[in-house]
């Protein structure tokens, strides 16, 4: 058994080195830096220990508070919509029909392309002069055209639309895997007993699918909480900070303004938001569901 311990450790070691250096250590370091005031690119100016001051500043920073609310709103809208849409896609893709493999591949297209590409694509579709959205709404009446990405609420909605398009298929895949674990016999028995399609969905599919739905919701929530690419490309956080989500604000503070102490404070907040939400879902799910390849 000692041999097993040693060999097991040796085999895990290379991965552990990377994980420790680039994931575990940085988390603790972010927390430490959040208690300091320093400039990212001018480290020789020194780091000044300021205790909880960055956190106090954060609470009185209207941009940060707005950013937190915007992020939570983004998560609260996109994650459930994506899971619902994913559920619908999964139900359709679970049927057997000619061309199902092709349709599954087509549905994967938004998932497969870089988020940066889909961001540019939606930016073009929402364009104020020749975007498709304007054309569908107003036709040839170009004087009515609006610039959705320059209007606070519309910009946020535009980013939500782009996110739903990009990631619903991922939710669909998770839910599809759940659907495939439901035995056909249940449906056969139900239809012999005269249950309608709706009744089967309501009383067989949805209850048995609950773990998969929650898991999809967990993954989508965590991912929506760190939305960045869409905002960077489509709006740069604007207009008037309407789309300035936390990850973007943290990026701007840390890397554009070089305030790594304050930036780290924002990071820590995002981290704990993600942690709290994950723990909440895992409680709802029961730890059992997360036992994927383990025993």
């Amino acid at each position: 058994m000692r041999e097993a311990q040693r060999v097991a450790l040796y085999y895990v070691l290379p991965s552990l080195v990377f994980v420790l250096l680039f994931s575990i250590y940085p988390i603790f370091e972010s927390f430490r830096l959040s208690l300091y005031r320093m400039i990212l690119t001018l480290p020789w100016l020194g780091q000044k220990f300021v205790g909880w001051e960055n956190y106090r500043d954060l609470l009185t920073d209207p941009v940060a508070m707005k950013s937190l609310l915007t992020t939570l709103l983004f998560v609260a809208v996109t994650a459930p919509v994506e899971v619902l849409l994913g559920l619908f896609m999964a139900l359709v893709l679970n049927e057997s029909f000619r061309g199902r493999a092709l349709l599954r591949a087509v549905v994967l297209v938004p998932w497969a392309i870089p988020t940066v590409v889909s961001s540019q694509m939606w930016r073009f579709i929402f364009n104020d002069r020749y975007g498709l959205v304007n054309f569908f709404l107003f036709g040839d009446a170009t004087h009515l055209y609006v610039a959705p990405l320059a209007e606070p609420y519309l910009a946020l909605i535009a980013i939500m639309v782009a996110d739903v398009w990009k990631t619903s298929s991922f939710a669909a895949l998770i839910i599809l895997a759940g659907l495939q674990t439901i035995p056909d016999e249940l449906y056969e028995a139900a239809s012999i007993d005269g249950a309608t399609l709706w009744q089967q969905l309501r009383h067989i599919t949805l209850p048995l699918l609950k773990p998969a739905l929650l898991l999809a919701l967990l993954f989508r929530t965590i991912d929506a909480l760190r939305v960045f690419d869409l905002v960077f490309v489509m709006t740069q956080g604007g207009p008037a900070d309407a789309t300035n989500v936390l990850q973007f604000y943290g990026y701007k503070k840390t890397f554009a303004e070089g305030m790594i102490g304050y930036g780290s404070t924002i990071s820590v907040v995002v981290f704990f938001a993600a942690l709290l939400l994950s723990l909440l879902y895992i409680r709802l799910l029961g730890a059992r569901v997360l036992e994927r390849p383990g025993r």
Binding site: F22, S23, P26, S30, F228, G263, S267
Partner: peptide, 13 residues
């Protein structure tokens, strides 16, 4: 992990 939570230290390393 949100990427931003590790970004600063990774950059510094």
């Amino acid at each position: 992990f949100p990427q931003i939570a590790i970004a600063g230290p990774v950059w510094r390393i």
